[in-house]
Amino acid sequence: MTTFHAVVRIDHQHAEILQFDAEHVQAQKVKAHSHHTAKHGSGVRTEHEFFGHVCDALAGIAEVLVVGSKTAQADFRHYIEKHRPALGKQVVGYETVDQPTQNQLVAFARQYFLKYDRMAGTPTPT
């Protein structure tokens, strides 16, 4: 499936990536792995690895909407700006959401991209 848009629901432990077109939705989940050692007990290292895996999963997607809590979005945005600035060009927005169902999230993202694409003058693929 060739996708043009994706929405990522992210927190500090999980990410759900929903790639979609007009008729299909493809879901992928990324989960943080915690591995604590006496020397490296910091959660920052684990969080960076997790955010890196999420970024890897977004490779090749033209437009990405990131949703979740304000804190998770801010931390992910900071990671992208510092470590993956090329991906920052693919992220078209950050929105705070509660816990919508997968169908509600895709509907929200479709509406968002419809408005975004119209404002940007981008033709929405059919």
Rank of each mutant, 00 (worst) to 15 (best):
R118M: 12
L87Q: 04
G121Y: 08
Q104P: 00
Q111D: 11
F108P: 02
Y112R: 08
T96P: 00
G88W: 06
N103V: 09
F108R: 09
G121M: 09
T101N: 06
Q99R: 15
V97N: 01
F113D: 01
K89L: 15
V92I: 09
G88Q: 07
L105T: 04
Q111A: 12
P123D: 08
L105Y: 06
D98C: 09
Y112K: 06
L105Q: 06
K89N: 15
A120H: 04
R110W: 04
Y94L: 04
A109C: 01
P123A: 08
F113C: 01
T122H: 15
N103M: 13
V106R: 03
T96M: 10
G93Y: 04
K115E: 14
A120G: 05
V106W: 00
T122C: 14
Q90T: 13
Y112L: 01
D117V: 07
V97C: 02
D117Q: 12
D117I: 02
T96I: 12
A120K: 12
P123Y: 10
V92T: 09
Q99P: 03
V106P: 06
A120R: 10
E95R: 13
M119C: 14
G88H: 08
R110F: 01
F113V: 03
N103C: 10
G121Q: 07
Y112H: 06
Q102M: 05
G93I: 07
E95S: 12
Y116V: 05
R110N: 05
